[in-house]
Simulated assay, not measured.
Amino acid sequence: MNYNQLGKSTIQVSEISFGCMSLGPDHAAGTDLLHRARASGITLFDTADLYDKGANETLVGQAFKGQRQQVVLATKVGNQWRPDGSGWDWNPTKAYILQAVEHSLRRLQTDYIDLYQLHGGTLDDPIDETIEAFERLKEQGKIREYGISSIRPNVIREYVRKSSVASVMMQYSLLDRRPEESCFALLQEHQISVLTRGSYAQGLLVDKPAKPYLNYSEAEVQRAAAVVQQVAAGSHTPAEVAVGFVLQEPAVTSAVLGIRTDQQLDDAIRAATRQPLSAAELAMLRQAIPVNRYEQHR
């Protein structure tokens, strides 16, 4: 397992991370997966207060009770559940963040969060107020670093300009190369880590039947998956190829993979020990389909 520095911080994270959102209600099974992942060298575990109405954080916190120093815990804030449980509303205010962090700390059974992330963001948000909340939590020692989870270039630029974010989580894969045009160079220039999600593009690059995805037609998705299979026919699995494509991007610090089953964890572990893709293999992948770009939030 390779480890990379998170932004300008002293935190080191595994280049393959565990996305906890998909963990089911079976806490015993979930705990076993989390422990196996940690034993394999995965150190960054990403959850959110939104997932399963906080129960996901509770599962992660209980699983790593007594092992806190061995893991990097990342969670998110900004989506506030309604009292009747019918859904959630966006709330990036300072008052809410300072309140919500206490609940996350309690569920995670810890007195600090390694990476606290804003779970979204728009230009209409009170961005200065949001940053003030994160900076206060850093001063208080309740969080070590903060970041945002956003795919919107205009929002990302505002946080790069105004804040000391350590990371930006965004979707990136062979079927979603939009960040290449508008975000990667900026974030790398400012030493801000990119944490990626969606490496498998909902499984379309690995084992799911082709269907339209973003601006790509079913035929284009099928073509991309076929090239992944072609590259994998050498010395890789399709999952290794999909993740390898993501991690070859210099701006990317860690690929956060959603893990729910033993097979998915096995795939993630294999991806961590993969042989790097060759220049020729990367060229085949890049030429598989036209590069897409952001049409909104520019």
Rank of each mutant, 00 (worst) to 15 (best):
L33K: 01
P92V: 05
W90F: 15
T58P: 12
G87V: 06
A74Q: 09
R82T: 12
L44H: 10
G66I: 01
A55M: 13
W81Y: 10
G85N: 07
A37E: 02
G54C: 07
E57R: 03
Q69E: 14
E57N: 06
A37F: 05
Q62R: 12
G66W: 01
W81R: 05
R68Q: 07
G54M: 06
T58D: 14
R36L: 03
Q70V: 09
L50A: 13
K76W: 02
A37V: 01
Q67H: 14
R36D: 01
L34E: 01
G61L: 00
L50V: 15
S40K: 08
Q80W: 06
S40P: 05
G78Q: 04
G41M: 03
V72P: 05
D84P: 07
T43F: 01
A55H: 15
R36N: 09
W88S: 14
S40H: 09
R38L: 15
E57K: 09
L34T: 10
F64T: 08
V77Q: 04
D52V: 05
D84C: 02
Q62Y: 08
K94W: 15
S40A: 14
A55V: 04
A74D: 06
Y51E: 03
Q69A: 13
V71F: 02
R38H: 15
V77W: 02
W88K: 12
A48D: 10
G41W: 02
K65E: 13
L33R: 03
K65V: 05
Q70I: 10
D49F: 11
K65D: 08
P83Q: 07
G85C: 08
L33H: 04
Q67Y: 11
Y51P: 15
H35I: 15
A55P: 06
Q70Y: 09
W90Y: 15
A63D: 00
K76I: 00
A63P: 10
R68T: 04
V72R: 03
N91C: 14
V60L: 00
T93H: 10
G85Q: 02
N79R: 11
L50W: 08
L50Y: 09
K65H: 12
G66V: 01
A63R: 00
A39G: 13
G87N: 07
L34A: 01
Q62C: 10
T75D: 03
G61M: 01
A74P: 07
N79K: 11
T47H: 04
